[in-house]
């Protein structure tokens, strides 16, 4: 079966700035691909090409079997999309916004109305349904925009940084919605700057830098490449930092980082929670007082540092220059 989303060698330039430089993607039907990368890496440009908002300068792409350039009109009836900023109408109410999207998807008046109510309920906007969006908070607008992407029950969904601007509760609710849709066979491409989110939602993660994919795999495969999780320890005195580093060196799956001002030691480990227990045992034996200890996923910065040897530099200035 052909993939639900396929991109081959996509290139997009804005003057001298190369936004996409040979982007390749393949997302099988009913799976979630997370595009992970810093601002300006090319995530949004990719989404804009795949949702027919932009034409690529080179390369080709298909979504649900439709070519993004030649078959754009048919493609649009098979996708739902939510951008980084809320594309909602200020003067219309939440319900009117969603009903309008339903009618423009040609669902008919009655179905559009019913679908709007369902989604408002789902995104916790029922109380605000009949108020103009002008009075909505940023988070409410984002939720309404996401609801807009779901109106048509499209087989392929594009979500550009879907959880940016959402509070933890709304974020968790969105994660549930996405999981449910995928269980029902929907294909999702989402972009994020957070490994944790990609880890939680995506079957596979594509790490993007300078307009192309630099690493692709499941969250576990990527974590194995970048040295698994991180143990983060805070000690009470700077004298202990060296002791900790020495005592825990055998556990480390990569470079151990120490931060003298924060009195923190970060150790990449491959065995997760088990490593944390072992580490704390070692430190007790060395009589080091630990003020705080925790296990966390690598940050985007750490992923980039490991994969590319450079920090996840923000290319936002270039991006806005277009």
């Amino acid at each position: 079966m052909s993939p639900a989303i396929m991109a081959e060698g996509l290139v997009k330039k804005y003057g001298d700035v190369v936004a996409l430089d040979g982007m390749n993607l393949s997302v099988p039907e009913g799976t979630v691909l997370g595009l992970l990368g810093p601002n300006g890496a090319g995530k949004t440009t990719t989404v804009r090409i795949l949702t027919t908002l932009l034409r690529p300068d080179a390369g080709r792409a298909t979504v649900a079997g439709c070519d993004v350039v030649r078959d754009a009109a048919r493609l649009r009836s098979r996708i739902g999309a939510s951008g980084q900023y809320a594309a909602v109408d200020e003067h219309l109410t939440g319900a009117e916004n969603l009903e309008m999207i339903g009618r423009l998807h040609h669902l008919g008046t009655e179905r559009s109305r019913r679908r709007a109510r369902e989604l408002l309920e789902r995104f916790d906007l029922t109380d605000a349904a009949d108020r103009p969006v002008r009075g909505y908070s940023g988070g409410m607008r984002r939720r309404l925009d996401l609801a807009g992407a779901l109106v048509a029950d499209a087989p392929v969904l594009f979500l550009d940084e879907p959880t940016t601007g959402l509070d933890p509760r709304a974020r968790a609710a969105l994660w549930d919605v996405i999981a449910e849709l995928v269980a029902g066979g929907t294909t999702v491409l989402l972009t994020t700057q957070y490994l944790e989110e990609a880890d939680r939602l995506a079957d596979r993660i594509a790490v993007v830098d300078h307009g192309h994919v630099i690493a692709l795999g499941t969250a576990d495969e990527l974590k194995a490449r970048i040295g698994g999780d991180r143990i983060e320890l805070t000690v009470t005195s700077s004298r202990d930092l060296e002791t900790v580093r020495r005592a825990l060196a055998p556990l480390a799956a990569g470079d151990v980082q120490t931060d003298a001002t924060a009195l923190q030691v970060t150790i990449p480990v491959s065995n997760g929670a088990a490593s944390l227990t072992t580490a704390l045992g070692h430190l007790a034996a060395e009589r080091v007082t630990v003020r705080d200890a925790g296990l966390r996923r690598p940050t985007l910065d750490e992923v980039f540092l490991t994969l590319t040897g450079h920090q996840a530099t923000d290319h936002t200035e270039k991006e806005t220059a277009r």
């Binding site: 949702t51 027919t52 908002l53 009109a73 048919r74 649009r76 009836s77 996708i79 999309a81 951008g83 594309a87 909602v88 999207i101 423009l104 998807h105 040609h106 925009d145 807009g148």
Partner: peptide, 8 residues
């Protein structure tokens, strides 16, 4: 942008 992703 929203309008342009719709099959209208």
């Amino acid at each position: 942008d929203r309008f342009r992703t719709l099959p209208m």
